[in-house]
Amino acid sequence: MGEVIVITSGKGGVGKTTTTANIGTALALAGKKVVLVDTDIGLRNLDVVMGLENRIVYDLVDVVEGICRLKQALIRDKRIEGLYLLPAAQTKDKTAVSPEQMKGLCETLKEEFDYVLVDCPAGIEQGFKNAIAGADKAFIVTTPEVAAVRDADRIIGLLEATELYEPKLIINRIRADMVKRGDMMDIDDMIDILAIELLGVVPEDEKIVISTNKGEPAVYDPNSKAGQAYKNIARRIEGEEVPLMSLEVESGFMEKLKRFFGLRK
């Protein structure tokens, strides 16, 4: 029996889809059987981030409406053993699926897979309610910004109200250089404010843009720091103790000297 994990955030654009794609790929690379479920009906993106957009025949709505069998809608990622995608419908809206139907779908999927990762849409309406309906656990993605952390706090409250306790936090797009000069909230600030357990910290990394351009999750790129951070998160999900990777950037004496003389901001 597998585990259903919803990846949510409240605010849009913080990296839910990127996080889902990378954690899922990393878990599959570690030999697990994984399915990624895109619940953002009407605005699907996970297929594009995974580079599987040209292989969609059926989607999640077709499955719940009984137009096709579940197996027919699952897209197998040919790059790794054991990684599948269940795409969202693009032409319908969030009301095409009910929380009960999502619950049933998740129950079926977790009989077959070790991990069912549900990519949640932004917002707190129907799409959110669908996405969390069948979840056993929740991961909350946030970035070091006031609006994102505020929304994360709201999501934590809403999850508790639906008895999804102890969500874990993923801090995305952190910039060590900005944290260092006091222009970005650091990890401790956010944990202190949100009071939930930290699962991982993902540094801002331009390789994410490149990997999204190509449709290859960053975990395939051994030089991507974000990719490395996502692999660490996958290992923690598997129960391993992995220390947070160092976010240090070059900020030696010379850097400070340059900044002091106004050569760098």
């Binding site: 006031v146 952390v149 505020r150 944290v179 000069r181 006091g182 222009d183 970005m184 600030d189 900044r259």
Partner: peptide, 19 residues
């Protein structure tokens, strides 16, 4: 500033607003 500390850092502003 030379030692990398500023009282009015934007991070502190962000934290206060968020709180």
């Amino acid at each position: 500033k030379f030692f990398g500390r500023e009282d009015s850092s934007s991070k502190e502003v962000a934290k206060e607003r968020l709180r």
